[in-house]
Simulated scan of single mutants.
Amino acid sequence: MEFLTGYIIEKSLSVDNLFVFLMIFSVMNVKAEHQPHILKWGILGAIFFRIVFIIAGVALINLFHPIIYVFGALLLYAAYKLAFGNDKKIDAENNWLIKIFIKYFKLMPDYDGRKFFIKENGKTYITTMFLTLLLIESSDIVFAIDSIPAIIAITRDTFIIISSNIFAILGLRALYFALAGLVELFKYLKYGVSLLLFYVGIKMLLSDFYKIPTEVSLIIITIILTASILLSLIRKRKFAE
Rank of each mutant, 00 (worst) to 15 (best):
L4C: 03
L4K: 08
E10Y: 14
K11L: 14
D16Y: 08
L18N: 00
F21G: 07
I24T: 06
V27K: 09
N29A: 13
A32F: 15
E33S: 11
H37E: 14
L39N: 07
W41E: 12
G42S: 03
I43W: 09
G45D: 04
A46Q: 03
I51H: 02
I51T: 12
I51C: 08
F53Y: 06
I54Y: 00
L60G: 01
N62M: 04
N62A: 03
H65I: 14
I67V: 07
I68F: 10
V70R: 10
G72Y: 00
L75G: 01
A78Q: 01
G85V: 04
K88R: 12
K88C: 10
A92F: 10
N95Y: 03
N95M: 07
N95D: 11
W96P: 15
L97R: 11
K99S: 07
K106F: 11
M108V: 08
D110Q: 11
F117N: 06
K119Q: 12
G122P: 06
T124W: 14
Y125G: 08
T127E: 00
T128R: 15
M129E: 13
M129V: 13
L134S: 10
L135C: 05
L135N: 05
L135M: 00
I136S: 02
I136Y: 12
E137T: 12
V142Q: 13
F143A: 05
A144L: 10
D146R: 07
S147M: 03
A153R: 00
I154E: 06
T155V: 01
T158N: 10
F159T: 15
I160F: 08
I162Y: 00
S163C: 08
F167D: 12
A168L: 03
A174L: 12
L179Y: 03
L179M: 01
L179A: 00
A180R: 14
G181D: 01
V183N: 13
L185A: 10
L185E: 11
F186K: 00
K190N: 11
Y191P: 02
Y191A: 05
Y191D: 09
Y191E: 06
G192L: 01
G192A: 02
V193Y: 01
L196V: 10
Y199W: 07
I202L: 10
S207E: 11
Y210D: 07
K211L: 14
I212R: 09
T214F: 13
V216S: 10
I221G: 01
T222W: 04
T222H: 01
I223R: 06
I223S: 08
I223E: 04
I224A: 09
L225Y: 04
L230G: 03
L230C: 04
L230Y: 12
K236Y: 15
A240S: 09
